[in-house]
């Protein structure tokens, strides 16, 4: 890969918009290959908008953002799909289709992203399902799985195209603490195998128990634990 030594994400002086008002000003940070980063902040603080801007779902109007070798500011419409194939997107509004099996869910994504050979698709599906610790769910319907298992399948789906970074928005949101721990460990394993992770979360126990770099959306600014110290949860409790 040509950008192997470059940061996966590089943001310079960017402003993040939500509809017509700015939610974050003067955002500057970089995420290196294989880095693990938390993104925290109160609801409406701009976490989701920031993530959406990273995968070109929201327009970038000010500043410069570079993701996986693509310049988001002047990305062409037909390049957006190629950008997204390099990202693993795990999002609240991006659930499994309830009307088809796990395997069909995965196949659907693969067909949409240009996979052609059935045998290769099968092999890759088994691979990612093993990676998330689900060996035998391929023929099950999503409603036959527990919440944690469903979330694992969603992660498996994000891994299909070997992304350079996973963008996860509240991946443990609806899960009980024990299951969240498991899911979080999975993210760590994935991260250890070289995939960068940017995880937005409300779950402060996670952030406390597993120290990693933290970005915090706070009053229209983005604070970076790499550069300054700040209270994780000052405004929450």
């Amino acid at each position: 890969m040509s950008f192997s030594s470059d940061p996966v994400v590089r943001i310079k002086n960017a402003s993040i918009f939500q509809d017509d008002k700015t939610v974050l000003n003067d955002v500057n940070f970089e995420i290196e290959k294989g880095e693990f980063v938390f993104l925290i902040g109160r609801t409406g603080g701009g976490k989701t908008s920031l993530l959406k801007t990273l995968y070109a779902d929201l327009d970038l109007r000010l500043g410069e953002i570079n993701v996986a070798g693509y310049n988001i500011g002047n990305i062409k419409k037909n390049e957006i799909p190629l950008l997204r194939r390099k990202l693993g997107i795990i999002f609240q509004d991006f659930q499994l289709f309830p009307d088809r099996t796990v395997a069909e869910n995965l196949t659907f994504v693969m067909k949409a992203t240009g996979w052609k050979e059935n045998s290769k698709m099968k092999a890759r599906q088994t691979e990612v399902l093993m990676q998330v610790g689900l060996g035998s769910v391929a023929s099950k319907m999503p409603h036959q799985l527990s919440g944690g298992e469903q979330q694992r399948v969603v992660i498996a789906r994000a891994l299909l195209n070997e992304p350079v970074i996973l963008l996860a928005d509240e991946p443990t949101g609806n899960l009980d603490p024990e299951v969240s721990q498991g899911i979080f460990k999975l993210f760590q394993d994935i991260n250890k195998s070289g995939t960068a992770v940017l995880m937005a979360t409300h779950d402060h126990t996670l952030v406390k128990n597993y120290p990693a770099r933290v970005l915090k959306c706070d009053g229209g600014k983005l604070l970076d634990s790499k550069l300054e110290n700040f209270e994780l949860s000052a405004k929450y409790y």
Partner: peptide, 17 residues
Amino acid sequence: RFLIRSMQLVGAKSSFI
């Protein structure tokens, strides 16, 4: 729209949709 939205999120080209 959910199907299409998903396709867009995983990076399906518009021609595929």
